[in-house]
Design a protein around this nucleic acid. Structure first.
Lengths: 363, 363
DNA sequence: GTGAAAGCGCTAACAT
DNA sequence: ATGTTAGCGCTTTCAC
């Protein structure tokens, strides 16, 4: 059984309150020598405060709960890393609950988190509109990051889809394209709506007339991109470039174009969105818009700690812009790494391996 | 603030102990009418027991901690889903802590879990040998699932790498190949060692002489597979088939082969290992060995609950076999779906969307 | 069949 | 500067 405060107190020959004060560097004065004695003893006996017990008393655990909707999403791990980075710097900790869209689990998750007295909750990649009565009732702050569906929430961090689409289409225009097809996501998604707006923004800016025939709808999957591209290639005055609202559809489009005997990027340029892993090792590698998921995670963590420590709330939803990652599929002549040089980063980075060298086995 | 037991008791006009007994269906007798009254009231007031407080008293929280080493790994989400599936069926809950190989976080994670009084821990995709003194001290059971590094642990669930490699190579032999190259992972990995053993098993079984020149080492990354394939293609009596120890290297190998002007699978057949997403939407799609990660997760959860509830320990490491997923890259004439038909499953399954229809907003 | 009271490990107000 | 004590929300022994 782990060492308790009482055992520590007995070993030090003082009362529990003194020990508590010494360890928590409380405002209450503690003799410098007793403090040192207690700290030494705590280290020697490997004392670890019981967070659950402390939380019961103080209603503070320095722990943030992360409710994750799709743990298999390409963004989720990066968002989590960003969140953890910021929390660690501020001596907070996080626990994750994965709901995988299951409504039962989702309701349960919030209650479980509250009942383990976390200080706040970050909802990661929320996929539907919802309120959070239990958290409001418990008076715990919460933040949304990378929301997939529509709605204007306070304390939320989201992708600026419109700006991202502008980056992609602007790039194609700069390369000389004026007939640009767009494969949109399904209706009802905020991303579909906003990326289409970005596409139109660029056309308007460059006085390219909007042709509805050039906009095809997919369902985010490879297959739908493939079919949409085939439709686009059949148009009399066919587009010389295609912007797809995500990388999966961009890949499908590339296959569709190649199947008609045309070449990417020589005959048709393609730009995707998301910068999923495979965009770096498909043939050709895919030019795409990368979302700054890591930074968004950090921001979300900052939003929650701001509420917790400084009572600051950001009522307007925050929108962060993405960046264009130029690869082979658009035929830009900037240097791009071919697929063969892709590195997946599925192993620990060298820096961490070095860090291990100094450590013994898990104690 | 959430409703407490005391408030419930006051509302019901009985003592807290009676309420506790009624809600926990304790062995202690409770009048049937009072029980009903209390249960109704609990539902009406939306009472939720405080897990942290209960755990403090009982040292039981019906919660399993998951220590996840690489949340971005393709297997981790599936393992987690398997674990959660089993736990949910047995009224347990799980919280995840992502360490991302960071030794500081890793040590911290176990302590944090203990100090939040979880009942046990599952280590998911452990990447290095270690002991778990804190858990042993706290007398909490733990289980390893999908261990990447060597070592024989009790209460662990792992891939049968040797059997998986046999499946892959056996398939190539059945298709008529006798010169089969093997791109292995780096030395020091259990998977590299065992998959090589499986490769040799098949050769021996079919009396194909082992040619060390046909075995090349990679580092799991695309690039290394590409280079290894180039080396293999330069051999005088070049192989007609290649087995790569993971899909990333298989893809690199395919690119390498294609770059020399040869075709996959017509000139050289390729089989990978892991069944990562892109194996389903590369060109050609990749025949590969799929690890039953979901089932492994369920098994790991069972192992931990067996220790918790039935005091059963499995001292021998459990090895589960994979299955062969036949696609285009090996030229088998079994029907295979081309890349264009790949479905990524990044959206909620239809069944869950239906489940939502009956629910109101999050309450 | 019910209630009072002790205590899980901790903190903080209240003594001294 | 240190100790005593109440209590966070809950379970459980003991008394009735």
């Amino acid at each position: 059984m782990p060492v308790t405060l009482h055992e520590l107190a007995r070993a030090a020959g003082v009362s529990v309150s003194t020990v508590s004060r010494a360890l928590n560097s409380s405002a209450h004065p503690v003799n410098e020598e007793t403090r040192k004695l207690i700290l030494d003893l705590a280290a020697k006996m490997d004392y670890r405060p019981n967070v659950a017990a402390r939380g019961l008393k103080t209603d503070r655990t320095y722990t943030i709960g992360l409710v994750v909707y799709n743990i298999a999403s390409p963004f989720t791990p990066v968002l989590i890393r960003g969140i953890q980075e910021y929390l660690k710097q501020h001596d907070y900790f996080s626990i994750i609950i994965s709901t995988d869209w299951d409504p039962d689990l989702e309701g349960e998750a919030v209650h479980q988190l509250i009942s383990r007295s976390i200080d706040g909750v970050i909802f990661v990649e929320t996929w539907r509109d919802m309120t959070n009565k239990p958290l409001d009732l418990a008076n715990k702050p919460y933040v949304y990051v990378y929301r997939l569906f529509d709605g204007e929430y306070a304390n939320s961090v989201n992708i600026d889809d419109r700006a991202g689409a502008v980056l992609a289409v602007e790039h194609l225009v700069k390369l000389g394209h004026r007939r640009i097809g767009y494969i949109n996501g399904p209706q009802g998604w905020a991303s579909s709506r906003d990326r289409l707006l970005g596409y139109k923004d660029v056309l308007e800016k460059h006085e390219i007339p909007f042709d509805p025939e050039l906009v095809q709808e997919g369902n985010w999957e490879v297959q739908s991109g493939n079919q949409a591209a085939c439709r686009l290639m059949k148009i009399g005055n066919r587009p010389t470039a295609i912007f797809a609202a995500n990388d999966l559809m961009a890949l499908g489009a590339i296959y569709g174009i190649q199947n008609t005997g045309l070449k990417v990027p020589e005959d048709v340029a393609v730009v995707g969105y998301d910068d999923q892993d495979f965009a770096g090792f498909s043939k050709p590698t895919i030019t795409t818009v990368r979302s700054p998921a890591f930074e968004m995670g950090k921001l979300a963590a900052k939003l929650i700690l701001d509420q917790l420590e400084n009572q600051i709330e950001i009522l307007d939803p925050i929108k962060v812009p993405g960046t264009l990652v130029i690869r082979e599929s658009c035929g830009s002549n900037q240097a791009t790494l071919p697929a063969e040089h892709y590195i997946s980063h599925t192993l620990p980075p060298e820096s961490l391996i070095q860090k291990w060298k100094g450590k013994n086995k898990h104690e």
